[in-house]
Amino acid sequence: MSTELEYSATLTGASFMFYEFKQVVSLRLKGFSEQEIRQKVLSENLFQYKVSASLKRGLPSILRRVEILDETLCQMILEQSLETGRLINLYAIMKTDRLFFEFMNEVIREKLQANDYLLEKKDINLYFTSKSEQDEGVAGWTEQTVTKLKNVIQRIILEAGILKDKKTGELSRILIDDQLKQHLIHIGDIAFVKAMGE
Rank of each mutant, 00 (worst) to 15 (best):
E6T: 09
V138G: 06
R64V: 04
D116F: 05
G58L: 11
I62M: 05
D70V: 00
Y7H: 14
F47D: 11
Y19L: 05
L87A: 10
Q23K: 15
E79A: 07
A114G: 07
G137V: 14
L59I: 10
L5C: 07
V66R: 01
S54I: 10
F128A: 12
K22G: 00
Q48S: 15
W141Y: 12
I124L: 10
M104I: 05
I93E: 02
R65N: 12
I68W: 02
K40A: 06
L87R: 14
D135R: 07
S130D: 12
D97L: 09
E36H: 05
S15M: 03
L27E: 08
C74S: 08
L29P: 01
V138C: 04
L112Q: 03
L90A: 09
G13F: 14
M76P: 01
A139C: 04
F103T: 03
G58W: 07
E44V: 09
E67F: 10
F18G: 05
S132F: 04
V51W: 13
L55S: 11
E34A: 12
S15L: 09
Q48K: 15
E120M: 12
T3Q: 10
Q144M: 11
S52W: 07
E71A: 00
E83P: 00
S130R: 11
E79L: 06
V107Q: 03
A14K: 13
A9T: 04
K22M: 02
N125T: 12
F32S: 05
V107H: 03
V24R: 02
A14S: 12
N45T: 11
P60D: 05
E34L: 08
K40P: 02
D135G: 02
L46F: 11
R109L: 01
V138Y: 10
S33Q: 10
F18L: 04
L87I: 11
S15E: 07
A14R: 15
R57H: 09
K22A: 01
M104D: 04
S15F: 10
E102D: 10
E102G: 04
F32P: 00
Q35K: 13
L73I: 00
M104C: 12
E106N: 10
I68V: 15
E6Y: 13
L46Q: 13
L126H: 11
L126F: 09
Q35L: 11
N115G: 06
P60K: 14
F32K: 15
S43L: 13
K56C: 02
S15H: 08
V107Y: 05
